[in-house]
Computed example of a mutant assay.
Amino acid sequence: MADHPPLTEAIIVAMARLVDDAQTEKREPSHSDIEFRIDQAKLTSADPGRQGKPVGKSKRVRGTLSWALSNNIPAGEALVAGLVSTVQGYGGFRPKSSNYCGEEAIVNLTAAFFAQGWELTAEGTLQPRLLESFTGKALTSALLAYADRARRGSLDSPLLAGTAKDLLEATASHVLVQKWGTPPSTSNFPTLLGQAFTALGFATPSIPMVPGEPVEKRIERAAYELGCSLNALRNKQGTGHGRPWVSTVTPSQARFAIESMGSIASLMLEALTP
């Protein structure tokens, strides 16, 4: 299953604005279209439009997505993707269309997606941005956004969209560029992660424990070991389109692995930008 676009408070507000036609002549998508997408995402029970009182399109979308953000993020992400496709299909991104959503609404949604590492094109196509297109602080922000989604278990796979690198490898490489000014010279993951930990001042198992050292050092060593274990679980024959884990990994183990990758990446990135 392909990775869905992200769901955040900013995206919810911008999505609601995109379908809002309260201040204009009525335009598509209709309530029926919105209802179809809500049902498709299995969020029927969260729809304010099914609760006895008539509500506008904006309030309907915002209420459903807000519930999803707190209770079922993957379903909310699926709804976001569906709504954008529906608006695109009705010509909502074309200025000359009778269903045009308006420049401000589109710009706001584009900016909200951009902050999460996704691109909404002028034609309404929604796609993840290649990490290679980011540098410096922008790449740090993009990686933090992916790490946050991984921590919440909302990524469909541990692969970063548009790359063949997993989250920890991409994060470790970025840390080295930011700290040492040069890209990593090794493709060996334990060495790469160890170098990144060293650049951040983190402890690794190769650094002996000393009496009275902060307990955080124990956490750092454990994070390194866990990171290497997670990398070993990856399906090295995969291309990003197949199963990302070795065949013996269960769904619950895969979810734990994804969330753990997000936690370790966040630990590194937040140390990079105190």
Score class of each variant (00 low, 15 high):
Arg17Ile: 09
Trp245Tyr: 12
Asp148Gly: 10
Ala112Asn: 03
Gly82Gln: 02
Thr186Lys: 11
Val61Lys: 00
Ala232Trp: 04
Ser97Asn: 13
Ser58Asn: 11
Leu159Tyr: 13
Ala271Ser: 12
Gly76Met: 06
Leu167Arg: 06
Leu193Trp: 06
Leu139Arg: 15
Gly91Ala: 08
Ala254His: 04
Phe93Met: 05
His31Cys: 13
Phe36Asn: 03
Thr44Ser: 15
Leu143Asp: 04
Ser260Ile: 05
Gln40Thr: 15
Arg27His: 11
Ala16Asp: 01
Gly240Ser: 10
Ser66Gly: 09
Leu155Ala: 13
Leu226Trp: 06
Ser85Leu: 06
Ser266Asn: 01
Phe134Gln: 00
Thr163Trp: 12
Ile264Lys: 04
Ser252Lys: 06
Ser266Arg: 00
Ala223Leu: 05
Leu143Pro: 03
Glu119Met: 08
Ile73Tyr: 03
Ser260Phe: 09
Asp33Glu: 11
Val19Thr: 01
Asp33Arg: 07
Leu7Ala: 04
Ser30Asn: 12
Arg50Glu: 14
Ser173Val: 00
Thr198His: 14
Pro74Arg: 01
Phe189Lys: 08
Ser97Met: 11
Asp148Arg: 15
Asn72Trp: 07
Thr239Lys: 14
Ala199Lys: 00
Pro5Lys: 04
Gly181Arg: 00
Thr125Pro: 02
Ala257Val: 06
Lys53His: 14
Arg129Trp: 11
Tyr100Leu: 15
Ser133Asp: 14
Ala254Gln: 08
Arg17His: 15
Lys42Trp: 04
Ser260Gln: 06
Glu77Cys: 14
Ala16Met: 02
Gly56Asp: 05
Lys236Asp: 12
Val87Gly: 02
Ala41Phe: 06
Gly162Ala: 07
Ile264Tyr: 03
Val107Trp: 12
Val80Met: 00
Ala75Leu: 02
Thr64Cys: 09
Ala2Glu: 13
Gly238Trp: 05
Leu267Trp: 11
Asp47Leu: 11
Ser45Gln: 12
Ser157Met: 04
Ala111Cys: 08
Val80Arg: 06
Asn71Leu: 03
Pro54Tyr: 15
Ile207Tyr: 04
Asn99Met: 07
Ser98Leu: 06
Leu176Pro: 03
Leu7Gly: 04
Ser58His: 11
Leu139Gly: 05
Leu120Ile: 05
Ala138Gln: 10
Leu126Thr: 07
Asn99Phe: 12
Gly102Leu: 05
Thr171His: 08
Gly91Pro: 05
Glu213His: 05
Ile106Gln: 15
Ser260Gly: 10
Asn72Glu: 10
Met15Ile: 13
Ala138Asn: 08
Gln51Lys: 14
Gly242Cys: 01
Asn71Gln: 09
Leu120Cys: 03
Thr248Leu: 00
Gln40Asp: 12
Leu272Lys: 00
Leu143Asn: 04
Ala41Asp: 03
Leu230Thr: 05
Pro244Tyr: 01
Ser30Asp: 12
Gly238Thr: 09
Ser133Met: 12
Asp39Glu: 13
Ile258Ala: 03
Ala196Pro: 11
Pro183Ile: 02
Ser187His: 02
Thr64Met: 09
Glu77Thr: 14
Ser58Ile: 05
Glu270Ile: 06
Gly92Tyr: 09
Asp47Thr: 03
Ser70Gly: 14
Glu213Pro: 01
Arg129Glu: 02
Arg218Phe: 12
Ile11His: 01
Ala68Lys: 04
